[in-house]
Structure formats: C-alpha cells, structure tokens
Simulated scan of single mutants.
Amino acid sequence: MAERTGGEPQIDGRSTRWDGHKAQRQVELVDAAVALIEEEGSHFRMQRLAERVGLPRSVLYRHFKDRASFDELIRRRVVESFVKRMEPTLSFEGTVEESVHRVVGAHLDWVAQHPRLYAYMGVAEHAMGDGSLVADTKTAIALMLSERFSDVLAALGVKGAPIRSVAVGIVGFVDTAVNQWMRDPERELSEDELRAMLCRSVWAVLEAALRDFGVELTPQQRVADVEGA
C-alpha cells in the first residue's frame, strides 16, 4: 500500500510499471495484427492472432477495450505507414513533371506493396471530410499539397489563389482511381499504364488551374527555379 508523506498520496510504482507494460504489449499486438493482415487479408480472426502471439484469446482481449478499439489502433498504425511514405514526396523537388510522378508514384507504390492493408483501411468507405481517420488523413494530405501549391503560386506573384479545392480534387481522383483499380478483377490497365494515366490527368488538372490564375508552366520546369524567380 502506498504511504502518505503529506497532503498528496504517493503513486504506487507497481501501477505505473503495469501501465508501461500494457502499452508495450498493445504495440506488440498491433504489430502482430498488421503482419497477419499482410499475410492473410483484412478479415482476420482474433483466434489466429492469439495463436500467432502465443496467448489465449481471452488474455488478448484484456489489452483492449473491445474489438472496435483494437481495429482502430490497427487502422491508425496502417495510416501512419501510408503517411510516412507520402510526406517526403510533397517537397516538390526537381521538375514539375518529376514532382507529379513522385507523389502519384508513392501512393501507387504503397498500395501495390500493401494491398491487404489498403483494403483494411476501408478507403472506399470514407469520403474526405466525414470525420473518420482515413478521411481525415486524405484531407490532411490534400491540405499539405494545397500549401505547397500556394507557395509556388505566391512565388509567381499569385497570392490567395483558391487552390485548396484543386488539391482536394486531385487527391480524391487519384485515391478513387487507385481504389477502383485495386478492386477490379479484370483490370483494363497495367500498373505502369495506371501510373502514366494518373500522372497525365493530375498534370492536366494542374495546368488548367494554373491557366485560370494566369500562370503558364511546362512539365519540364524546375519547381525551385519557379520559386526562386
């Protein structure tokens, strides 16, 4: 029992040690679940996870409030992996064309490498702005893109341009096209053809938006040169 030394009770060190152990155990179980999904698919059974980590299923459940909260932690881990892959590509280094290929390629590469995790995220079920973790992630990426677009436009003397809707539209288009391609049992495009189509389409949208703002850019122009102009 914790002793009192004054006005406030001392914290029992055993409880804090248990909290740390429980948090670490949760991380290990989420990692194991992600690995299981990668191998067997998004509709994994808790019994399979229990067998994988060597715990009775009843003990496994003690580490989480319920299955829904466990699924949310897994989904959060998957989203973190996706965002970690995407964030470095939003720097717009190199030419405009290279920048478009890098961002679109990062999205498609992650999905192609982790198709079962992508399915587990339930991307098609979440539209941007619906308040879900996946939707909020797509919105966050769109906002990061719009900030970079705004920086480039400001460097060209165009400030306060309504570019956010363009960024949201681009993210939504790429996401929807990739999702449909992943789910299509008879794909009309190869992965390379899809990549090329997405890059052409994104550039077409950007070029049209830039023209509306009185800006003319070519795909071969370097973004750094534009910003330094």
Results as ranks from 00 to 15, higher is better:
Glu3Cys: 09
Thr5Ser: 07
Thr5Asn: 11
Gly7Tyr: 15
Glu8Trp: 14
Asp12Cys: 07
Asp12Pro: 09
Thr16Lys: 07
Arg17Asp: 06
Asp19Lys: 06
Gly20Glu: 07
Lys22Ile: 00
Arg25Gly: 09
Asp31Val: 06
Val34Pro: 03
Ala35Phe: 12
Glu40Met: 10
His43Trp: 12
Glu51Pro: 13
Gly54Ile: 09
Arg57Gln: 07
Arg57Trp: 15
Ser58Thr: 03
Lys65Leu: 05
Ser69Lys: 13
Asp71Ser: 09
Arg75His: 12
Val78Gln: 02
Val78Tyr: 07
Phe82Ala: 01
Met86Ala: 05
Phe92Pro: 09
Thr95Gly: 10
His101Lys: 04
Ala106Pro: 14
Asp109Asn: 08
Asp109Glu: 09
Val123Ile: 06
Ala124Pro: 14
Ala127Ser: 09
Asp130Thr: 06
Gly131Tyr: 05
Ala135Pro: 11
Asp136Cys: 09
Thr139Gln: 09
Glu147Tyr: 13
Ala154Phe: 08
Leu156Arg: 10
Ala161Leu: 00
Pro162Leu: 01
Pro162Gln: 14
Val166Cys: 02
Val166Ser: 00
Ala167His: 08
Val168Asp: 06
Phe173Lys: 07
Gln180Ile: 12
Met182Gln: 05
Glu191His: 14
Asp192Ser: 06
Glu193Phe: 12
Met197His: 13
Cys199His: 06
Arg200Phe: 15
Leu210Asp: 11
Arg211Trp: 12
Gly214Val: 07
Glu216Tyr: 14
Glu216Met: 13
Thr218Leu: 01
Val226Ser: 02
Glu227Lys: 15
